[in-house]
Amino acid sequence: MASDTSKLGFYLLLAPILLWLTLLILLPHIGLFVVSISEKVGPRDYETGFGNYAAFFTEPLYWRTFARTAIMSILATALTLLLGFPIAYYIAKITKGRTKTTLFLMCMIPFWVSELVRTFGWMILLRETGVFSQVLQWAGLVSGPVEMLYNDAAIMVGLVYTSILFMVVPLVTTLDSLDDSLIEAGYDLGGTTSAILREIVIPHAMPGIVSGCIVVFMLSLGNYLTPILLGGKDSLWFTGMIYTQFITRFNWELGSAFGFLLLALSSLVVFFGLRLSGRSLAETMGRS
């Protein structure tokens, strides 16, 4: 009897996660997959086949946007890492006590408002009548208004800005656990600053780097707001394309196929990223 009740308890505790997994993740994906392999041959008339996937490969706009999204996301991840690492190192290793908490909090504060508001903030700075343009005109560096919005650089700025916290937090955590005496030992044994960074600090921070990169890459790849608002109409992003298929074109079949392609892409990039850094997903997620 006792074991029966404990079993019941176990399943009751397990139920929410199981429900969440099946109802919110498994079922919708099965549904989407079924939709993605149905081809419309007439009104309310569908056939099973991979025509939607074929359409993706035959139409250059689709796969070029796809590739562009992937490359820009990787670039954004790399930039975020380059920018986030010194910040994290400064917070974790150079500052102490109160300054450390304050700096860490200052990294977080922008994230208390919604991504939409933050992106609008960048629009106020970058647009033709915006702050930067006016300052440049006032300083006499340019003769007329400058438009800094609606290009790839603006998208990149927005992507890095929205995701940097997710790089800084895991990095601060891993760098915090690096014993200062290891760095001192490195210097003591004749290491230069760059050698110590390369041989001691970065290998130690690797779990943080990998998990930060995975999160930032996923966020960039799946970002919708930033590319649309900062990139304008001409700047295509794959999530925007999925939105168009579902909402504007009402072509759920193609939209679902795109969704699956995006899922495949992110899984593939994460897989190669882990391969490259020689780590398993379990130890990366477990340690940070």
Partner: peptide, 15 residues
């Protein structure tokens, strides 16, 4: 890193 001394740390600090 330029001194001709080496140090064995309290907790050894092996990498």
């Amino acid at each position: 890193n330029k001194r001709p001394v080496s140090m064995v740390f309290q907790h050894l600090a092996l990498f």
